[in-house]
């Protein structure tokens, strides 16, 4: 004789819903997601109630198959909860526990409804385990996807923030590069620089690579391309801020940077001023004549 676990589970959840909800919110309260202060108790209870209600309906409509049509609204609710947790900064454990902590109250409810019928209890436990594991995994998947999204957006923001073109003087631009240069970023950098050259009618652009951690052949090639493009527009480029270790690595790698390069941005700026026919002089403070 086989016992349908789904039926056992359905009965337990329907008959004992209030008790399950009580136990579950109790477990959630103790689990520590409240202590972090990221979510209020009332909100947690509302979520729990909604999820349990939908779980009951889904069981009636879709049986044990958590991927079926009957579970669509429950999956949607869990996805929303999970997404908001990812943004609120919950740990993965906290998020997964939201679903997994439902197991124990349901086990207890199964125990109460099945009474002494051990095989019914076993079938019910198996059924609830199967469904809740699937739902838990679904929650985690959404959680991770939301995290990835957040990370991707931050990466994009960093890329946008870290390629400013600043005007140092009339006709002199500086492009302080920060972070690793890859093809995508070089494209953005190049476009920004060239547009700035047009807008500012710049004669000289200083590319400062103090903030670039490593310069390999690829990065050097990207730099050269930028310099060449700027030259085509009629502006000269000076590369500055090559750190001693990087200079050594470049020479050892055989990377040749056939452009004007200076050790510091200040040196490059001095060259740029000289080329545009300007010079900086100290205001005379004493009788001593300063050059």
């Amino acid at each position: 004789m086989t016992i349908d676990g789904t039926e056992v589970l359905k009965r337990a959840v329907t008959e004992d819903e209030a008790a399950i909800l009580g136990d579950w919110t109790g477990a959630l309260r103790e689990s520590g997601s409240l202590q972090s202060g990221r979510i209020r108790e009332a909100e947690l209870q509302t979520q729990a109630k909604a999820v349990l209600g939908q779980f009951r309906d889904a069981l009636a409509a879709g049986g044990l198959d958590a991927d079926s049509e009957g579970y669509a609204s429950l999956r949607e609710t869990l996805a929303d909860i999970s997404r908001s947790r990812a943004i609120q900064g919950f740990t993965p454990t906290d998020t997964a526990n939201f679903v997994f902590s439902l197991k124990e109250p349901i086990f207890e409810a199964l125990g109460r409804t099945s009474g002494a019928d051990a095989s019914a209890l076993a079938a019910g436990v198996w059924a609830v385990g199967k469904v809740l594991d699937r739902l838990g995994l679904h929650t985690m998947e959404v959680f991770l996807a939301s995290r990835e999204e957040v990370i991707g957006r931050q990466g994009q923001e960093i890329a946008e923030l870290s390629t400013p073109v600043v005007r140092l003087w009339d006709g002199i631009l500086a492009l302080p590069l920060i972070g690793t240069l890859d093809s995508a970023r070089t494209g953005v950098v190049m476009e920004n620089l060239l547009q700035a050259i047009v807008d500012e009618e710049a004669e000289i652009a200083i590319i400062d690579i103090t903030g670039v951690p490593t310069v390999d052949t690829l990065v050097a090639q990207h730099l050269l391309k930028t310099v060449a493009a700027a030259r085509l527009m009629g502006a000269d480029c000076i590369v500055s801020g090559i750190r001693p270790q990087i200079a050594q690595t470049m020479v050892h790698l055989g990377v040749e940077l056939n452009v004007v390069s200076k050790a510091t941005l200040a040196d490059a700026f001095a060259v740029a001023l000289k080329r545009t026919g300007r010079k900086v002089v100290r205001q005379q403070t004493s009788t001593e004549e300063l050059r």
């Binding site: 476009e191 060239l194 050259i197 047009v198 391309k225 493009a229 085509l232």
Partner: peptide, 12 residues
């Protein structure tokens, strides 16, 4: 004289 940025990038 007067090369556009997009043209410069393409040529490079």
């Amino acid at each position: 004289a007067g090369m556009r940025p997009a043209v410069a990038i393409t040529l490079v």
